[in-house]
Design a protein around this nucleic acid. Structure first.
Lengths: 218, 218
DNA sequence: CTTTAAATTTAGCTTTACCTAAAAATATTT
DNA sequence: AAATATTTTTAGGTAAAGCTAAATTTAAAG
């Protein structure tokens, strides 16, 4: 069906362009898969031949529906194997990538789906990245209070409970806005404060603030 | 280190010639890996280059110590993955081969050894074939009465309890000798007789005979 | 709106792992 | 032991996936 190389290109295009929906450049792909632009051109023609990619000379590449599904399946496998390695085989999260990079190319629908079940249908890999389901979709995000996500994981600020002027001013002053990615670094039981990290800063927020912040994961 | 193709040739030589110790023919290898004799010649030269095989033109190939170890590692991985697939992922024993054939080439020492531990250090795969340890050795064989091995499995005749002249004559007459490979095909509860198969024949042995035959497995 | 710079593609070459067909070596028959 | 058959090797070729260097197209600058 698809070769190992093809799968790596599909993954690259998927990751570079919003799940393959937007067009990405030959050079960007070359950098991602660590090859040269000319090699990318060749491969991309092949992917177009197979109806996995949309390609117009000099205009970049995106994925077809078929290509997007194929890419999502590879990523699904990669992330499921990462969960397996960390949870069952005592790998640390920074050791898993190279091995998962090999395992993701093993072909067997039954294998992926049984592995998924064996692991209890995880929704995220050890890096916090979401795991696509068998149709390439991600489980719908739901907002949860920032207290309810695990330390070390990341969410996108999607809702604030308190919408008083005072609270919105606080957010502004502290450079927090809807859509920001927030990582919870630490929880302090003494006063229920949280240490969080955003794109711009690391900061401590009080219980009162945290109770009003809702994030989406997945 | 070794490519996927090289590993498949190493496996073939290992299996065809008593763990690679005896010389096997180009043609035999070609049949095993499903390629042509000329392709085998090429590959075998490459293996010799890498000091994985001993090769003399027109005289066949065997494995070096290094090659034997490499082959045993691939086989170890294959069989461990088979155990995993059957015991953890609900594969039936006849579904596992193709998938294990892919998984056996994943490179990571840590992966193999952690998988081994996760599975509880199994000594045999679901087909009853022994699993080499990390040094390529098999767990030492112990003699068991032929009644105590599973139907469908194979053992090497290693000991006879009764050494009277009458019994030895019986063995002789029936072309049974120490070192013979014996497969137990069926057990008949009515009279405790066994149907067995040797290199030369298929035969039924009585309870009295079976009680005196001891075989080594693994 | 030309000219220059950057990105992309084409053309032609390399390596790996195959293949076919012909040549050489070894085995088998008579 | 010569003749034939079989096996193995060599020679030369193919497809996949990469590369370099030159040519082409698009983008950016003056």
């Amino acid at each position: 069906m698809t070769t190992l190389s093809e799968e790596n290109y599909l993954k690259a295009i998927y990751h570079l362009g919003k799940q393959g929906t937007i067009s990405v450049s030959t050079n960007a792909i070359a950098k991602k898969v660590d090859s040269k632009a000319s090699s990318v051109t060749d491969m991309v023609k092949k992917l177009a031949e197979k109806e996995l990619a949309n390609y117009v000379r000099y205009q970049g590449v995106s994925l077809t529906e078929k290509g997007r599904l194929a890419a999502a399946l590879v990523i699904r496998k990669h992330r499921l194997w990462e969960v397996f390695l960390v949870e069952k085989l005592h790998f640390s999260w920074d050791e898993v990538h190279d091995v998962a990079e090999q395992l993701e190319h093993v072909k067997s629908l039954k294998l992926v789906n049984e592995l998924d079940a064996f692991l209890g249908f995880p929704t995220h890999d050890p890096h916090g990245d979401p795991i696509p389901d068998k149709d390439g979709n991600y489980s719908p995000m739901k907002s949860v209070n920032i207290f309810d996500i695990e330390t070390g994981t990341t969410g996108v600020l999607s809702f604030v409970k308190d919408s008083t002027d005072a609270f919105l001013k606080y957010l502004n002053k502290n450079d927090l806005a809807l859509g920001d990615t927030i990582k919870v670094l630490d929880y302090e039981p003494f006063d229920d404060s949280l240490t969080i990290e955003t794109n711009s800063q690391k900061m401590v927020i009080s219980k009162e603030v945290a109770q009003n912040l809702y994030v989406k994961q997945v």
